[in-house]
Design a protein around this nucleic acid. Structure first.
Lengths: 341, 341
DNA sequence: CTGAAAGCGCTAACAG
DNA sequence: CTGTTAGCGCTTTCAG
């Protein structure tokens, strides 16, 4: 007996029809007791396992979801993976990794996978839609997709995100409260929404404090370490050097801090730095980075939860779930030197 | 026309049989030219996409592989994900995330998924087998599984790994060449093979240098930052404080360095530290960490390549692929103080 | 509560 | 080169 037992085999052994076996094994409650346990025993003794491919065809489901990111090797996603994976598992879904590398072709590919039945739903963290899909809002809204982390403007799909502007605002407020006045902002790749929003928060806090943002105080980076270093160097070659930096993500903040060290400037003695994201390692960096912490695992969980609702046709889907951030005040920020005020 | 076109629809429109359509669309080369393009056009105009679920059932394949790790949120895996994903994609496979959290139940679960046809193969980075499978080597060897990164002793499956002992040996040699004599080793969770091998490399280098390893110079950690900090503190409360540390992974090395800072010791001025793994951020850590760099993306690629061979019944599968490591010498190691010799 | 029958959409013999 | 036929293994009407 080498081949896998199928439902038919167990029907034969239990002396019932395949249909009954199917019903018994799916806990439908439609099978009576003497039969039920007979079937279960037969299944057990034959070491039966349902063939998912057959089931998938019949039910037109895959019990899998697609988790699409720009770059699987970005550490930022790690805990989101975990959150999504945990929630998906619980509901019986498995998770397919999608990696777009910011290629429009690949972005489209995952939409196709959805269409083709590779997966039943998708958590999209890609920040944009394939152009072919962006047009028709009606049709788009019907797709089983939840947008997480990133924000796609004017997109009718449910979103799970943080309040980027408010979080940035809070971070800058913190610097202000420490007495800083010359606060520069190393910005993300505008015009991406997320970067724009974080910059907005910065501007709002500055404006409220009655501070003008000097020309060139908002250089634009690309979220990478070298970019943070480079822009920091630029900023500190100015006559009006900042005493504090609000950096749009932690990686650029790392780059900036290392650059400051090279310039002989102490953090936070000479310059305070606030990041955004709270990466693994931001805490054990030296100095420990003050940063806006996103509840990444929860974002993953929420996104998957929403997606489950979408896939179940549950109408309690929320168009927008906003997750709270917290400013983690650590060692990279300190009071402004009084001479600098 | 709302419903998806199926092969039958396009057969109808092109005036051929479904079988011919299937052949045409799969580039089998069995369809002649006038027919071929007619079919392609029909498919195009109907916006046809094959239903993967039907195909999967028919072909008894899933065109998916399972990538099983202990903890998806461990940054170490990031580039491996990328390597596996890239190679899998190229071959038309998608990648399912598997996360065991070191639970035997979950480990088994993924083996079951393989059996059940969720995936056609598995890259196992879990370091052990479910007890139910460990017994029967014959049967195990027939499963489409490649073990990567971790080493499972006596397991007949193909492995893709690095030479842990030799890499550790090289790391310690580096410290020796800098004049260090009191070199301690913060060890991983023995008796796990990987930790044992790294310790072996350390011991070998020490022995060759004619140095005895003092009692307690090889404390055992669990690869986490706090564990590195704690063991470092212990080590430096001894009378015979080390002048150098070889730490079994980068995370514990981070913990150790932060602890040294707290103790008022300079790295590398007072103490040199070598890590293992070369994480994202090890380079931008302060001081930049000297560490053994594993070619993670390549490990992922190789593992997937081997798995493709296994799944294709290709007999060129190598039982063991050993990937080369390189010692990245950065700022956390320096010459021993002469007074310490 | 159980059985019979139909079919999900595709591919692969087997003929022609 | 193309058509016919027969399932892959399961679930789900529809009857009884």
């Amino acid at each position: 007996m080498d081949r896998r037992a199928k439902i038919k085999d167990i029907a034969l052994r239990a002396g019932v029809s395949p249909a009954t076996v199917s019903r018994a094994l799916s806990d439908s409650g439609l099978v009576a007791e003497p039969t039920l346990s007979r079937i279960r025993e037969a299944a057990q003794s034959l070491d039966y396992r349902p063939n998912v491919r057959a089931r998938n065809l019949r039910t037109q489901k895959s019990m899998a979801v697609l988790l699409v990111v720009r770059d699987v090797s970005n550490p930022f996603y790690l805990e989101i993976f975990k959150g999504v994976e945990a929630t998906a598992r619980e509901a019986g879904y498995s998770v397919l990794m999608g990696n777009t590398e910011n290629h429009p072709d690949r972005e489209l590919e995952y939409f196709d996978m959805l269409r083709d039945g590779h997966a039943d739903g998708m958590v999209l963290m890609n920040g944009r839609l394939p152009s072919s899909h962006a047009r028709d809002a009606e049709q788009l809204a019907r797709l089983p997709i939840v947008v997480a982390l990133e924000i796609i403007e004017g997109c009718p799909l449910p979103h799970v995100q943080i309040d980027n502007a408010a979080s940035a605002y809070g971070a800058v407020k913190h610097l202000l409260s420490l007495g800083h006045r010359r606060i520069a902002h190393i910005c993300g790749p505008v015009p991406e929404v997320m970067s724009v929003l974080r910059r907005e928060g910065y501007r709002k806090a500055m404006a409220e404090a009655g501070l003008a943002v000097p020309e060139g105080y908002e250089p634009i980076g690309d979220y990478t370490i070298p970019s943070g270093a480079e822009l920091c160097r630029q900023l500190f070659s100015r006559p009006d050097k900042p005493t504090a930096l609000f950096v749009a993500n932690d990686e650029m903040a790392f780059g900036a801090i290392n650059e400051l060290r090279k310039l002989g400037l102490d953090v936070p003695g000479d310059v305070s730095v606030v990041g955004f994201d709270d990466l693994f390692l931001s805490e054990c960096f030296y100095p420990p980075l003050t940063t806006v912490s996103q509840p990444r695992a929860d974002i993953g969980k929420q996104a998957m939860k929403q997606l489950l609702r979408v896939m179940n046709g549950d109408d309690s889907v929320e168009a927008l779930v906003e997750m709270p951030t917290t400013l983690k005040i650590r060692g990279s920020t300190g009071p402004a030197k009084t001479s600098d005020n």
